[in-house]
Design a protein around this nucleic acid. Structure first.
Lengths: 250, 250
DNA sequence: TAACGGGTTTGATCTACGTCAACTAGTGAA
DNA sequence: TTCACTAGTTGACGTAGATCAAACCCGTTA
């Protein structure tokens, strides 16, 4: 909500984080919401999308318990979602990169079930959910796409359950690296050389490991020649082995 | 698909598993799909619901990879869903009791992402998804309800991730027991005395534990006077402590 | 220049749970 | 009755990863 309420503020038009004026011309259109829509339908989507000024690192997009109003698409930068359980411990529930949608956990109870915070400067598109519901009633493509999106998130979460409940530390971390690599490839970025936007603490929390274990596994992978890692900068040297480790049962 | 294709076979009309002829008169209507619909809308839902002959224990409702056609509501008995990863190991993804909906993981890619098998004799309602999409386009209540259902499953899966990645064996098992107890209460069954429909193996798999650990924790809970357990028959003696253990951070 | 603080790495030790193995209790077949 | 088979329990022991503890790195501030 914060910092994304104003539409198309003139002063931000030339900022790289605001390059897209509309969905049709957005370079992410092939992987983001427009993906499933026809040309004329994208225009209708475009009318309900609100583009705000970029979030700074550490700024929240929404907080757990806030009244649910909108879902969000990442346009640039990256966002992490996390929830805090009754017992007070934090659980990182996801990392969101450009073209990815977050906030859908709020639909079920009209309150966000998690908080979302920028891990670096990030530009976000806000899409009010009431408008999505309207549009979904009119455009079968839109309805179908949202059913699919939600369902896919269920499947991904279930795969993540398998990952954290049945796989070793090495498999979990290889899996995360392969996932980020593939998501970069989708955006035509290098799948072998990239910067991890999240801290070791976030990685550990997301994967159900301690920060020390994360650090040790990175070191071990480097020693084995699978990758080079300098702080957050990763260069994958042997993606095939990494993929094998990632999908190894044990 | 198997065994649920024929509609209202006359021979099953008097079977207890076929007590409901329609959604409006079904004793689960308050917790199942009709929950969100108006009287006249339930009639429309009713027209697309297919009620089949009961599944026997061990029979599959659908299998991972099958073309997605329908979602299912449990009318009696119980069903477990599980998926098999590339690496071959099984992951139990959920247990479904009367009034609960399964199969929604198939929407995303037009194939079921898991298999569903009856854990005991079970009556199932099949609802073709194409009809749900049609109806959702016409009835905003229906669309809204399905968005909510899907979103709630996301939130539950994320809570399950927290459970298996951050909680001890005792907390996980207490949590499962409290969940089953609450779901029984919703159906006006005793929350303190019930039969677990699933095996120790299934419980362990679902919670990311071995069968031995499950067994030991049950024994420990019994020794501490929290419950009595005889094979699958559970009597909860101290639900408050059990709930405390279930939501304990550590 | 030093002092500070957050994020990260590395080593030493501990522990919850997994693994392996033996045993019990049903259940059903012949 | 015995045999076989499956599900569950219990005990002894091993281990992956947690915990505890130092130290390091690198901006920032004083």
């Amino acid at each position: 909500m914060i910092a994304v309420s104003e539409k198309n503020a003139p002063s931000t038009k030339n900022c790289p984080h605001n390059a897209a004026i509309n969905c049709a011309s957005c370079r992410l259109s092939a992987i983001c919401l427009p993906l499933a829509l026809a040309q004329d339908e994208i225009v209708q989507l475009d009318e309900i999308v609100q583009r705000g000024r970029p979030l700074q690192k550490g700024q929240h997009l929404y907080r757990e318990g806030d009244t649910f109003t909108s879902i969000y698409a990442v346009r640039s930068g990256s966002v992490k979602a996390y929830s805090v359980s009754d017992s007070g411990e934090e659980q990182v529930t996801g990392f969101y990169l450009p073209g990815e949608i977050l906030g859908m956990d709020g639909i079920g109870h009209n309150r966000y079930a998690s908080s979302a915070v920028a891990m670096e400067v990030a530009a976000i598109c806000e899409i009010p959910f009431a408008n999505i519901e309207d549009l979904s009633g009119k455009l079968p493509n839109m309805q179908k796409h949202f059913f699919k999106l939600l369902s896919q998130e269920i499947v991904e979460d279930q795969q993540h359950i398998t990952l954290v409940s049945k796989h070793t530390a090495e498999e979990r971390i290889a899996s995360l690296l392969v996932s980020i690599s593939a998501r970069n490839a989708r955006r035509n970025l290098s799948p072998l050389s990239f910067r991890l936007p999240m801290s070791r603490t976030d990685i550990g929390n997301f994967l159900g490991l301690t920060i020390e274990t994360v650090s040790r596994v990175f070191s071990r992978f480097a020693k084995q020649g699978l990758l080079e890692i300098d702080k957050k900068e990763v260069t994958v040297l042997d993606i095939d082995t990494l993929k094998r480790v990632a999908s190894l049962g044990h």
